[in-house]
Simulated assay, not measured.
Amino acid sequence: MANEFPQTLTIAGTDSGGGAGVMADLKTMQERNVFATAVIVAVTAQNTLGVQDFMALPQKLIDEQFASLAADLKIRACKTGMLADAEHVHGVVENLKKYNFGPLTVDPVMIAKGGAALLADDAVVTVRDELVPLADVLTPNLPEAERLTGTTITDSRGMERAAVALQDLGAKNVIIKGGHEATPEQASDFVLLADGRSFWLTAPRVDTVRTHGTGDTLSSCITAELAKGKDFESAIRIGKDYVTAAIANPIAVGNGHGPLNHWAYNQGGAE
């Protein structure tokens, strides 16, 4: 029967280097056995060494991409990534309110691995006030959580407090990624679910520069699992395992912050 196969949507910017953004989203979703679609918000000139330039698309064309998907496909879960500036964040929010594309995972992308800003300063407020309240799952890293909450996070208690603050902003389920922590032995993420339950997800820290696109990959995997009907906790746990495998089994691509190995998890036979 038409449209019964699980379908997902990423709303983000491209990465010409193939390691992050829409490219990482599509690879991840494909590996998780869903059909992936995309609304392109911006185009970057980017490689493992950094972001050389980017340009946001006209809002009219973004609106038409949303309308085109809604007219034909049955999107069961969606995610946002790089949204460029306040105007484009607002435009995406309006479309998300207009169309039902299932549960929304928000990856509040602000800075690339190489340090380039991917979100204008004035857009942080728009993300906080307009996009975060729509999030069924919110996946900030530590710097993003700090900017959204206006706090400084220095330890695990700070991560827990920030997760509560992000729920107070309207996000239902929150996972704060601890990859930026100084802890040398392990990377720990804090998860606060909508029902009040919380837990930590811990994995051994891998000494590697091949972590480009980690946040995109996590949020994409969560989106794929939600599209297949998994509950939020299961989707988040699978996402963590998927990213851990992708980092632990690196591929040698590029001369800078290299991409993840998006097929590593499935090579282990996981479903």
Rank of each mutant, 00 (worst) to 15 (best):
L83R: 06
D53L: 11
L166F: 01
L49Q: 15
V106D: 09
V164E: 03
D72W: 08
R157L: 15
N95Y: 03
N47I: 06
L148C: 02
V106C: 07
G114L: 08
D85Y: 07
G115S: 14
E146I: 05
L73E: 05
A117M: 14
G170R: 02
L83W: 06
V51T: 13
A162R: 02
D121M: 13
L138K: 05
K74A: 09
T80F: 08
L49N: 15
V92D: 07
L49D: 13
I62A: 09
K60I: 08
P58K: 12
D129W: 04
L142V: 15
L134Y: 01
A112Y: 12
L166W: 01
D63Q: 13
D129A: 12
V106I: 07
G114M: 09
N100C: 04
I62W: 11
A70H: 15
L142P: 10
A71L: 11
D121E: 15
V124N: 06
T154N: 10
P108A: 04
V124Y: 13
R128F: 01
L131Q: 02
Q167L: 00
V106K: 06
Q167W: 01
D121K: 14
L138C: 04
A45F: 08
A45V: 14
G102W: 07
I62Y: 07
R147E: 10
A165Y: 00
A116W: 10
Q52I: 11
T149K: 06
D168Q: 11
A117I: 15
T139C: 10
M110I: 01
D107C: 06
L148I: 00
V125E: 14
D168I: 00
A86V: 01
F101E: 05
A84C: 11
A84P: 03
A123V: 01
K98Q: 10
F101S: 12
T139F: 08
I153L: 01
G81F: 13
L57E: 05
A71C: 10
D122W: 11
V174C: 00
T48Y: 06
